[in-house]
Nucleic acid binder design. Structure first.
Length: 604
DNA sequence: TCGACTAACACGTTTGAAGAGT
DNA sequence: AACTCTTCAAACGTGTTAGTCG
């Protein structure tokens, strides 16, 4: 087993994030679409690896994975927002998404264990501004931040588990705090993003590859904001989010009620001042102003005047008796810390160990460095229809995927139903299964796939997600890399996977294939404690865990690979999954170490 | 001056502990 | 003793708003 000593970066603790982050941020705006390391690696690819992969016509290569389907349960709600132009508030402390991603999974093997991940990637490389009642691209996107992947707290769980209930990612939080230590997903404000959900067979994780399904629901695209720009979005949120009930028409926090409170407050302040200002030299002129015309500044002045800072014995006012309760109680930092996290870790380890035991090819970990088949997928995406993002149209689609681009005229609830559907690429439905989940062969898959590439972002008309007539091939590393394999390549090992988007009229999102890049080693290190009453959400931070929707985006191209971090959704994060910045190799979860106490601990 | 952002605020929901009842 | 149900307070999730910053 590898030790921390083999990966000096692991010893650096939390600051590693910042290190890597700043490396990203310092990347020049004119940075190439691909990082130098990637470029070099791509150039170094043997021609055979760049060639299109064989099309898997052989039915024998089909696995149950091909039937994995995902449905966006609250698609209608998402479409409501999408039709207006979904905005998501991001705050320093982290803000949940609303609507949340509520999903239904089917087609999984009930007895196998899976891990569900959520990540959010830039939908394009533009920055937006709300003007003229709509969103306009106003420039290039900011440098990409370290990617973080939110691991569903139930992970790993059996296919039966996932299929028996609605899967919700509502615990995931978004932040604009680039130095966030809470494990929230870091995003730039005023940028457009696309959430993705990944289903990874747990044991595949152990072998640095294996099958994977990724699902994209275009209607879940959103623009991040620090304050709502579109009133319609605010209304929608208030009307559909139970937490915002108070702001509804009949709520105590409605505009009407707030105005009434404001008036009452002014009245009380006025009365208070009547007492305080028994001294004629006080701010009597403030009181001369009609209440109705009192400005906020005036209110502040009134409040200040009424505060017990003017103890005048002559007026009988006793400041110490005043009930000014501005006692802001300091938030107690929750330090569920390492003990809790460790329990979580051990749980996953156990489950993973079980997986390993149940897998005849449990020696896969040792064979991860073996090469694998290369497969290529390419497709052309038609231009999407314009939508609620006036200058950034979304692809028109339903909440589920269909391999056939069928018009969705039946969806009358969707105000845009009349818009011609997007012809989603056949790649997404017909792509081959690259690795069998049941195979005992620990081979890694090599895949080349093609994703649409948005035109240059400096255009005032942002390009729609997944729409392009000039697809760009996305290449993954040809050779498998293991921690034991010294290399200067920036590419991690790769494996087969699938990506899926939904088409306009389908019932389910159905995956096609892409590479889990770099390999995720969640299972081997993550342990959940079944006895724990609550399972923390966890976030795997990895800059290049999965391929970008559009590899040409600058944000997808860190010049150096930041470390991967594994966070629980807790205030304190003792565990961190790092990647060796020198070798660009992802460190298996078993090398997670504890940083909460300023010390390193190899957990397994 | 203006747009973006932040912190404080009030209200509602959620959660979990404590107590009562069976 | 064990279980279920109710109550209640704290924590948390909302949008709003005033103020700050560049």
């Amino acid at each position: 087993m590898l030790s921390v000593e083999m990966y000096p970066s692991l010893a650096l603790g939390p600051q590693r994030i910042g290190d890597c982050f700043y490396r990203d941020r310092q990347a020049p705006a004119h940075m190439p679409l691909y990082p130098p390391t990637c470029d070099a690696a791509a150039k170094a690819l043997p021609p055979r690896l760049l060639a299109p992969p064989p099309v898997p016509n052989d039915p024998a290569t089909k696995t149950p994975k091909d039937d994995v389907k995902m449905e966006l349960e609250n698609a209608s709600l998402w479409k409501q927002f999408s039709s207006v132009g979904t905005e998501m508030i991001i705050t320093k402390k982290g803000r949940r998404m609303f609507p949340g991603l509520r999903l239904k999974l089917s087609g999984l093997n009930p007895s196998l264990r899976y891990i569900l991940l959520l990540d959010i990637i830039p939908a394009d490389n533009s920055r937006y501004r709300f003007q003229g009642g709509g969103w306009q691209a106003v420039g290039g996107a900011e440098a990409r931040l370290p990617d973080r992947v939110f691991i569903h707290p139930d992970s790993p769980a059996t296919g039966a588990h996932w299929q028996s209930r609605t899967i919700s990612f509502h615990y995931a939080k978004l932040t604009n705090n680039t130095l966030d230590t809470q494990g929230h997903i870091i995003l730039h404000s005023l940028h457009r993003y696309q959430p993705r959900v990944h289903v990874i067979e747990a044991r595949d994780v152990l072998r640095w590859g294996g099958g994977q399904h990724s699902f994209v629901f275009p209607e879940t695209q959103f623009i991040t904001v620090t304050a709502y720009q579109n009133n319609k979005i605010t209304e929608l949120k208030i009307n559909s989010n139970p937490f915002a009930k108070g702001f509804r028409e009949d709520g105590m926090n409605s505009k009407k009620q707030r105005d009434a409170r404001q008036k009452r407050k002014i009245s009380v302040l006025t009365e208070t001042l009547d007492i305080v200002n028994c001294d004629p030299c006080d701010s009597a002129e403030l009181l001369q102003q009609p209440i109705g015309t009192t400005t906020s500044t005036d209110l502040q002045a009134l409040a200040l005047a009424s505060l017990p800072q003017l103890p005048d014995p002559s007026c009988g006012f006793r400041p110490e008796e005043a009930s000014y309760q501005d006692t802001m109680v300091q938030e107690q930092p929750l330090d569920l810390g390492q003990a809790f996290m460790a329990s979580q870790m051990s749980d996953i380890s156990i489950s993973m160990a079980n997986e390993m035991q149940n897998t005849p090819g449990s020696e896969v970990a040792n064979n991860m460095i073996e090469g694998s088949d290369a497969t290529s997928y390419s497709s052309t995406f038609p231009t999407a229809q314009s939508n609620s993002f006036p200058s950034a149209p979304l692809p028109q689609s339903s909440s589920s995927f269909s391999s056939l681009p069928v018009s969705d005229s039946s969806d009358t609830s969707n105000p845009q139903a009349s818009i011609p559907p997007i012809d989603y690429p056949s790649i997404l439905s017909s792509s081959p299964t690259l690795s069998s989940s049941t195979t005992t062969t620990p081979s890694l898959q090599q895949t080349t796939f093609t994703f649409p590439t948005p035109p240059p972002s400096n255009s005032s008309s942002p390009q729609p997600l997944l729409s392009s007539s000039s697809p760009t091939a996305y290449h993954t590393m040809p050779e498998t890399i293991s921690p034991h394999t010294p290399t200067d390549s920036s590419f991690p090992a790769q494996s087969s996977a699938s990506v899926c988007t939904n088409s306009p009229s389908s019932e389910h999102a159905q995956p096609s294939h892409f590479l889990p890049y770099p390999p995720v080693e969640i299972g081997a290190m993550t342990q959940f404690n079944p006895a724990a009453p609550y399972r923390p959400d966890m976030v795997l931070h990895h800059p290049s865990l999965l391929p970008q929707l559009d590899p040409s985006l600058p944000s997808s191209l860190p010049t150096s690979t930041p470390p991967s971090t594994l966070y629980p959704a807790f205030p304190s994060y003792p565990l961190r999954l790092c990647q060796d910045p020198h070798s660009s190799l992802s460190i298996p979860f078993r090398h997670l170490y504890n940083t909460s106490m300023g010390e390193r601990t190899v957990l397994a």
